[in-house]
Design a protein around this nucleic acid. Structure first.
Length: 613
DNA sequence: GCCGTTTTCGGCCCGACTGTTTTCAGTCG
């Protein structure tokens, strides 16, 4: 039996183990529970398939997976099941684990409900529970009441209508509206989008917003009256959550201005960044929270065996800004995009100037000097997606954006509707057209125009235009638009063959992923990186919000492997040229500096590189 | 069960909110 375990399956399994330990004896297994949850989180966020890492004997590289869990996973991949896990699950109803996806239902609640209501079938557990709730059976159970029954029912109904993680730009739109609303309240001094939104993750779950105010209760009250809310999920003294009509959750946290820096730090996350930061601080004798920093007096260590394990804490030190918060801990300010516990904390610690990893000076939007992936409406008769805007308009916009150069990279002419000589003719005409544009435009707007093309890489690795056609281009981008389902080795060969011609400089949207739509294809990245570095080929970071491809974790790998990238919009109209910032976010999340991004170079420097054959 | 510029042993982030068991357990981020 060789089931194909995905990362999602594995994370769920590890979480179930943690849940089982929680039910059996939360205190006894306290640290196993934490360890399994952490391992599950790690697997969820892993940049490659755990199964592949196991194949390559690299399981140890995943943080939070040590020798014990690694050997359990080894058993899982070999036998399809794990003896130790079966033991941990023994005596517990299998159906309880199905209930854990209901918000507000944790291990103990799930256990109690399945046990008392005699829910047996894991595949029907949620709907069985829903039926019981409707019949009023839950309220009769000890520890439950009418309200908790209603809450469970609501949660079940919402879980089915729940929207998946939303794309960053959509989250920004929603957050902007809520923030505008909050700023209309005179008691609100400041309001900021935080969480994954501030870290510029490609997709966002809940929308997190912070407010500085001296009247938190009144602001919470105002917040819960937001016109587009469906219902209030919770509302306390300093935090509140609402569900919008669109089923998106918005979380709010409030602190006075004097302590706002700690709140920004806390609520920006990520969870793993905060945990690591707090562990590091603890070793220096500090305890961190959203309120500020306390010095711990270690000498007054708690007595052995005391029931209430509380550390003696000193006076709270407040911080008005995040810079001061990090500086107090002897660290440089860490840009939000880096806060993923990916080495940024170690890099931010000052003192040691000789250390190997330092915080990068991240690339900025204003460093970008041109857009090298644009589709105009020049009638190239492409196989798909002709642009909507005329070249002149796009050049004008580029000037407004402060660019020095542009590349027009329309899709190659369709091969089904044209003979080879017709394709050559179209390319010749395109070249003449751009020469004309360049000669008439050159005097008015100081923008260099490259005449390029986005060429399909066919499944056999050949390009979708005849080789001869390449001579009509300044350079070319190549991309995969068909036959995504190839195995990793063949896809790698296909792409490396496609990149081989000297005129080809850039691999467009290198993984082919579409967020919330399809996974990208797998590649042997080490080979791709090596090929690019040796042959001066560049990987695109597509700023297109549904692609954001290369993904951030591969940008980080590319930086490590000294492969340069370009950030481009893949615009099919003038308006889309404003999307560049989303590509810059991805680059920043991948630790990219200006020097890693080719299109931060001035026009003369980049011309030398792109036009060299 | 994991992990290491205080450690291969002895630690392990920190707090909010809700409903119900009126003093706290369970869940969440």
């Amino acid at each position: 039996m060789n089931k194909n375990f995905t990362n999602k399956d594995i994370a769920e399994l590890l979480r179930s183990v943690a849940a089982a330990y929680t039910v059996k004896d939360e205190n006894k297994y306290k640290f196993q529970i934490i360890a399994y949850q952490r391992a599950a989180d790690s697997v969820d966020h892993a940049s490659s398939e755990i199964k592949d890492l196991w194949d390559e004997k690299k399981l140890g590289e995943i943080a939070g997976i040590g020798s014990s869990i690694a050997s359990h996973l080894d058993e899982l991949f070999k036998n399809g099941k794990v003896k130790h896990f079966t033991q941990v699950f023994s005596g517990l109803p299998a159906a309880m684990f199905s209930l854990l996806k209901i918000p507000g239902v944790g291990p103990k609640t799930a256990y109690k409900l399945t046990k008392i209501l005699k829910i047996k079938d894991p595949s029907k557990a949620v709907s069985d529970l829903e039926k019981s709730a409707k019949l009023g059976k839950i309220r009769t159970i000890e520890g439950f009441g009418e309200e908790s029954e209603a809450k469970i029912l609501k949660s079940i109904q919402e879980v089915s209508g729940r929207t998946e993680r939303i794309l960053l730009y959509q989250a920004e739109e929603i957050a902007d509206k809520v923030i505008d609303y909050l700023k209309n309240c005179p008691l609100v001094i400041r309001a900021d989008p935080l969480g994954s939104l501030r870290r510029k993750c490609s997709t966002v779950g809940d929308i997190d917003i912070s407010v500085a105010s001296d009247k938190p209760k009144e602001v919470i009250n105002y917040f819960t009256k937001y016109p587009h809310k469906k219902r209030i999920l919770e509302a306390g003294e300093a935090t509140a959550s609402i569900l919008l009509i669109t089923n998106h959750q918005v979380d709010l946290m409030i602190q006075p201005s004097s302590a706002y820096g700690a709140l920004l730090q806390h609520f920006t996350g990520s969870k793993h960044h905060n945990i690591k930061l707090r562990e590091v601080a603890l070793k220096k004798g500090f305890s961190l929270s959203e309120y500020g920093i306390r010095k711990i007096r270690r000498s007054e260590k708690l007595e052995v065996g005391s029931e209430k394990e509380e550390r003696p804490k000193g006076k709270l030190i407040e911080f008005s800004s995040e810079e001061k918060f990090y500086n107090f801990l002897g660290m440089e300010f860490i840009p939000p995009e880096l806060r993923e516990d990916g080495g940024e904390i170690e890099a931010a610690i000052k003192q040691d100037q000789s250390k190997l990893i330092k915080l990068p000076r991240l690339v900025n939007l204003k460093d970008v000097k041109g857009d090298l992936h644009l589709h105009s409406n020049f009638p190239i008769e492409p196989s798909h997606d002709l642009g909507e805007s005329p070249v002149e308009e796009m050049v004008k916009r580029a000037f407004e954006l402060g660019y020095e150069y542009l590349a027009f990279t329309e899709h190659s002419p369709s091969t089904s509707r044209h003979t080879e000589s017709q394709i050559i003719n179209l390319l010749r005409r395109k070249k003449e057209f751009f020469e004309q544009i360049i000669s008439s435009r050159a005097r008015k707007l100081p923008i260099k125009i490259f005449n390029s093309l986005e060429i399909d890489i066919k499944p056999n690795g050949e390009l979708s235009i005849p080789k001869e056609g390449l001579k009509y281009l300044d350079f070319a981008i190549v991309s995969v638009h068909t036959s995504f389902k190839m195995d990793r080795k063949s896809m790698t060969e296909r792409i490396l063959k496609g990149l081989d011609h000297p005129k080809v400089k850039i691999l467009g949207h290198p993984t082919g992923r579409k967020l919330n739509e399809r996974e990208g294809y797998e590649l042997e990245w080490e080979k791709v990186f090596e090929f690019c570095r040796k042959n001066n080929k560049f990987l695109e970071i597509s700023a297109w919000p549904e692609r954001l491809d290369l993904p951030d974790f591969l940008v980080k790998e590319a930086v490590k492997n000294e492969v340069k990238m370009i950030i481009s919009t893949d615009s099919h109209s003038v308006e889309q040229m404003n999307l560049m910032k989303y590509g810059v976010y991805v680059a920043r999340r991948g630790w990219a500096e200006k020097k890693n991004i080719l299109n931060t170079l001035a026009v003369n420097e980049i011309s030398d590189i792109l036009l060299k054959c």
